[in-house]
Measured scan of single mutants.
Amino acid sequence: NNDALSPAIRRLLAEHNLDASAIKGTGVGGRLTREDVEKWLAKA
C-alpha cells in the first residue's frame, strides 16, 4: 500500500524505478524501511 510509504522511501523507490509491491517490508505492520530497499537493491 503506497499510503504507508514514507516520503524518503517513495523517493528511494522512484530513484531506482522500483515497485514497492516487489519488496517485502519488515517494518511495523509490514512497512518498507530503507534497509529493506537497500537489501533488495544489493540482491538485484
Results as ranks from 00 to 15, higher is better:
1 N>V: 14
1 N>I: 13
1 N>M: 11
1 N>H: 12
2 N>Y: 04
3 D>W: 01
3 D>K: 10
3 D>G: 10
3 D>R: 11
3 D>Q: 12
4 A>K: 10
4 A>F: 15
4 A>Y: 15
4 A>W: 15
4 A>D: 14
5 L>F: 06
5 L>Y: 05
5 L>M: 10
6 S>A: 09
7 P>Q: 12
7 P>N: 10
7 P>D: 14
8 A>N: 07
8 A>I: 09
9 I>N: 01
9 I>W: 07
9 I>Y: 05
10 R>L: 12
10 R>W: 05
10 R>H: 06
11 R>V: 06
11 R>L: 09
11 R>E: 09
12 L>G: 00
12 L>F: 09
12 L>A: 05
12 L>W: 10
13 L>D: 00
13 L>A: 04
13 L>V: 03
14 A>F: 11
14 A>D: 08
14 A>S: 09
14 A>L: 11
14 A>T: 07
15 E>R: 15
15 E>H: 14
15 E>N: 10
16 H>T: 01
16 H>C: 06
16 H>E: 01
17 N>F: 08
17 N>T: 04
17 N>S: 08
17 N>M: 07
17 N>R: 08
18 L>G: 05
18 L>I: 15
19 D>S: 09
19 D>L: 10
19 D>T: 09
19 D>P: 07
20 A>Y: 08
20 A>H: 07
20 A>M: 08
20 A>Q: 06
20 A>V: 12
20 A>S: 08
20 A>D: 05
21 S>G: 10
21 S>E: 09
22 A>V: 13
22 A>I: 13
22 A>Q: 15
23 I>S: 01
23 I>K: 01
24 K>Q: 13
24 K>M: 12
24 K>T: 12
25 G>K: 03
26 T>S: 11
27 G>I: 02
27 G>L: 03
27 G>D: 02
28 V>R: 10
28 V>H: 09
28 V>E: 14
28 V>M: 11
29 G>E: 06
29 G>W: 05
30 G>R: 04
31 R>Y: 07
31 R>Q: 12
31 R>S: 11
31 R>F: 07
32 L>V: 13
32 L>D: 00
33 T>F: 01
33 T>E: 03
33 T>Q: 03
33 T>S: 05
33 T>V: 04
34 R>A: 10
34 R>P: 08
34 R>K: 14
35 E>K: 10
35 E>N: 07
36 D>S: 00
36 D>V: 01
36 D>I: 01
37 V>K: 00
37 V>N: 00
37 V>M: 04
37 V>W: 04
38 E>Q: 11
38 E>K: 10
38 E>H: 08
39 K>M: 13
39 K>Y: 14
40 W>C: 02
40 W>A: 15
41 L>Q: 01
41 L>F: 07
41 L>I: 14
42 A>W: 13
43 K>T: 11
43 K>I: 12
43 K>H: 09
43 K>S: 12
43 K>W: 15
44 A>F: 15
44 A>N: 14
44 A>Q: 14
44 A>D: 08
